[in-house]
Amino acid sequence: MTRHEDIERYLSNAMSDEERMAFEEELQSDPDLREETKLYASTVDSLRRTLQPDAGEQALRDKLERNRTYFSSENDKKKQTGRVVSIMRWAAAAAVLAAIAIWAPWANDPLSEYGTITMPSLVERGADSAGRIAEAAKLFNEKVYEEALPLLDAGVLNRPDDMFLLFFRGVTHLHTGNPEKARLDLRKVFESKSVYRYEAAYFIGLSYLDENREEDCRTWLEKIPAETQAGKKAEILLETLK
C-alpha cells in the first residue's frame, strides 16, 4: 500500500482504530508525511470549492451577470456586439414565449432560465490548444456562444473522446439554436462514465423542453439520480412540469 493510499484511508476514515493510532504516531515523527497529508487534504478542499460550486453560487453568478450593464458605455457596446446580439436574441425569444406560451409555468424561455452552467477555466492562457480551451471557456461563460463554438470544434477535433469538451460543445449548440447537434454530443457524454453524464441528461431534457416536448424532457430528467448536482436542478424543473 502506498503512502498516498494510507493518507486517503486516513482522511476518509477508512482505517481501523489501530491503524489510525499508528498513522498518527507516524505523523508526529515524520515531517514529510505530515506535509504531504496537509497538502493532500487542502488539495481536496480546493477541488471541492472549484469543481462543485453550489446552487447558491450559480444563482448569484447569473444575477451578477445581468448587472454587467452598469459597466457599459457607448464604446463598450460596440466592442460587445456579439454578446449584445446574443442577449437580444434570447430576450426576443423570451418575449415571444411569454406572449404565446400561456401554458408554460415559467415566464421566460426555459433555456435562459434553466440552461446556465459555468465552464471551468482550469488552464492558463497560452498559444497551445490548452490556451484555446481557456479562451473558449471565457467566451462560453460570457455567453458569447457563437464565438466559443469554433474553438470547441477545434478542441473536439483534436480530442474526440474528451467528454468535457463534448459536453460544453453540446450546451453551446443548444444555445446557438441547434438542439439536434446538441443532443448528439450530449448523448455521447451521457453514455460515457464522464463526470458530466448527468449534466448531459439534464441539458438533453432542457433541449426537449425548449421544443415544447414535455414528455421527452421528463423522460430524460428522470434518468438523473436525485443526489447528484444535476439531480437537484432536474427536480426543480420537474416541479414546473407537473
Partner: peptide, 10 residues
C-alpha cells in the same frame, strides 16, 4: 490546484 488538476488524464 485547478491548473494542475486540468493536466491530469481524463
Amino acid at each position: 490546484v485547478s491548473h494542475f488538476f486540468q493536466q491530469l488524464g481524463d
